[in-house]
Design a protein around this nucleic acid. Sequence first.
DNA 1: AATGAATGAGAATTCATTCAT
DNA 2: TATGAATGAATTCTCATTCAT
Lengths: 235, 235, 235, 235
Amino acid sequence: MPRKPALSAEPSERSDLPEPAGTPAPPASHQRRKAERPSELLDAALQLFVEKGFAATKTEDIARLAGVSKGTLYLYYTSKEDLLREVISQRVSTRIAEGMARAAAHQGSATELMRTLLVDWWMQTLESDASGVFKLVVSEVRNFPEIAELWFNEISQPGSQLIGGMVQRGIDSGEFRQVDVLSVVYSIVMPLVMLCVHRHSLGACECPGMGLDPQTFIRAHIDLVLRGISTHPEP
Amino acid sequence: MPRKPALSAEPSERSDLPEPAGTPAPPASHQRRKAERPSELLDAALQLFVEKGFAATKTEDIARLAGVSKGTLYLYYTSKEDLLREVISQRVSTRIAEGMARAAAHQGSATELMRTLLVDWWMQTLESDASGVFKLVVSEVRNFPEIAELWFNEISQPGSQLIGGMVQRGIDSGEFRQVDVLSVVYSIVMPLVMLCVHRHSLGACECPGMGLDPQTFIRAHIDLVLRGISTHPEP
Amino acid sequence: MPRKPALSAEPSERSDLPEPAGTPAPPASHQRRKAERPSELLDAALQLFVEKGFAATKTEDIARLAGVSKGTLYLYYTSKEDLLREVISQRVSTRIAEGMARAAAHQGSATELMRTLLVDWWMQTLESDASGVFKLVVSEVRNFPEIAELWFNEISQPGSQLIGGMVQRGIDSGEFRQVDVLSVVYSIVMPLVMLCVHRHSLGACECPGMGLDPQTFIRAHIDLVLRGISTHPEP
Amino acid sequence: MPRKPALSAEPSERSDLPEPAGTPAPPASHQRRKAERPSELLDAALQLFVEKGFAATKTEDIARLAGVSKGTLYLYYTSKEDLLREVISQRVSTRIAEGMARAAAHQGSATELMRTLLVDWWMQTLESDASGVFKLVVSEVRNFPEIAELWFNEISQPGSQLIGGMVQRGIDSGEFRQVDVLSVVYSIVMPLVMLCVHRHSLGACECPGMGLDPQTFIRAHIDLVLRGISTHPEP
DNA sequence: AATGAATGAGAATTCATTCAT
DNA sequence: TATGAATGAATTCTCATTCAT
């Protein structure tokens, strides 16, 4: 029933824009649409679920936002809940994989790795749609136990391993003190997760805001933690 | 038919009966009930709103949990949304006031003040029902702009002032470096807010959990920050 | 890029090429299929309508059961209701014609004719798909007045004439008493119709069943009636 | 929100008219209605299910026919299917019990008993709403296995026992030949069930009809069977 | 002719709110 | 005040039918 979405969350998605002449015609619109629908629906669903919450989102609005009719949604997903599941598991997993690849490829010091990787990764995440998933999960887990499972298996656990691995590397190399790894991971991650959550809740309101830009905050936060665990804190 | 205008949750609600002058008159049991109804309804509403979210909570469930009938709820609150408003503004404000009083009374160093006050306050908050309000606000602000207002005026702003004041005190006294106060406030608060949010979302699931107890985390987190801003970090 | 229209499983679909003149050209297998489509659709529709009822049957299921796609169904029938009409009028009429032919050809006594013809005819009907039509008509006439017309003109009336004719023959020959012909016809037919209906309703359930095989029942029933109207009942 | 004026199909319902003075007021309308609702809904549901079939009946129509709103139906029955179940088990069981009581009380011959009891019972059944249940069951069993169970346990089995008992009584007393009891039961019952089914399907159409009145048919049918199994058939 | 993606009217069910008691 | 039966707008999901390919 649900079509396996099958395509990336990547950009350059959906050009209704006229193709440069000479380019072979795009695949027959019928077929092309079919291939893109699932992803378009997922985008629409994510946006609305994050903004309004699952229960307050109408399937018809998702469909309209994706540019299709009510019925079409059910050609690709069996239910609103199915859509919720897919939205969550599709949008973060790939990002985690990317992070792991980058960490594995890194040559320099743990401190350096963390400073660049964490800042980059979280900045990109924060600015992408994926950041909304954090708010969504936080808001809805208790209503859908299945989400908790998804979260731990596909996101929390691999994520902890990724960051914990970097901390451990620093301990082993003598850069960091003999801290409790897991505790540090949470100290690092929680404010950043919160930043994502914030962006889609209070941060999305007219109101004052927290008065500093995210990049500055992320950088400062990472520095703070690194200084906290470093064996040679810079003055 | 004009709805009773959503009176406050305060006791001594509208006794048209003249109190016997001077006599404290222990309230008759059903009188007492009557006086407590609003608060019981608020407790029930908070619990369910936090657990299921606003849209997914049924007014009937709130009423049942508070031990009254559906209709009764509407004698005290004009609508489900009214209940949401009240729930949010009632449960955190008092706690903030307490914190400010305690901070004002403190004599010793800023470091000392922060270490004790923040740990105590957040531990108590985390363990009380009030912690749920954080999750509730995070989940629902975007649907109810009014909540954002409540939040900033009654919670965020006074809270920032409380903590920012302590940081500033430390800077003035030379205990802390010349850091950006607001940035530090956020570094302090965000993980703690997140802890509250977490407790009512992923933390409420069966799943592994974050592996460390809250008190330890709070203490470690405050220490980390203090070390980060201190002019004389302990080794 | 127009997708090759996903042709049916059949090869060499659709030859626009002129057939070699003069050659009788045994119908290409796909030609045969094409010719049989309507009948296959009717079979599928009958089966599902009888089993689930008209309203609860999905056109897509009919199409699938007939081995074609949803759209194809509409190339042969204008609507689901059209299919219902056709299903009813096609499957019983032929059987009635057969019965009339056989009755006309018969030489012996009315008793003998009825004993053989009725038993044979109803056994064959009961075991064929046609038996389902009785259940279908019974279940759906009230929703489709048109069906009532079909029923009376094409089935009920000719059928009554067929059986009534045999009874009258027996009265005329002195084999039967001066009974009311129509009344006898109904006494004969109703249990047999009921047998068909039963086969497709309660008789199709797991449950105990009526404990006697149809042939025995039919035989016994006919005997009972014949004995009832006979001028010389066998002891 | 306009209150449904709540008039039932019943006459003299809802008397805004002044009650005759001195008459004790009818039970509080609120309460009285609550007590009658389930039965009114069942009546409405039976009528529509029998006429249109389960799938083609709209819950809203049932509600309207019962004089209530859509939502009210769900205060009494959990679903349309629940209504179907109840409709079937409530309307025939009582009639069977009545029949059994009467049979048990009978003193005279089996022949006499059957002639009077069967004719009476089936005439009453045929003319009551209960007759519709037969059509309903026949049309819907295959979609709802649960109905088959209900049918066998609450209707078919006790019914067979009731009639079979009478036949057996006649055999024991020498009135009837040594026939196969069950077979006779079916010969008796099937045309009568069919009569009920017929009344709510083809019999409800404008069309010619079967040309004889039910009472005559029932009488003739019973006579026919009795003559068929009697040891001393009257000429 | 055949396909199957898309549509949208329609049906079952839920739930905030009202109001007679 | 308190109750809970009743309401009906709103929401999810289905399915007959259409139509571009």
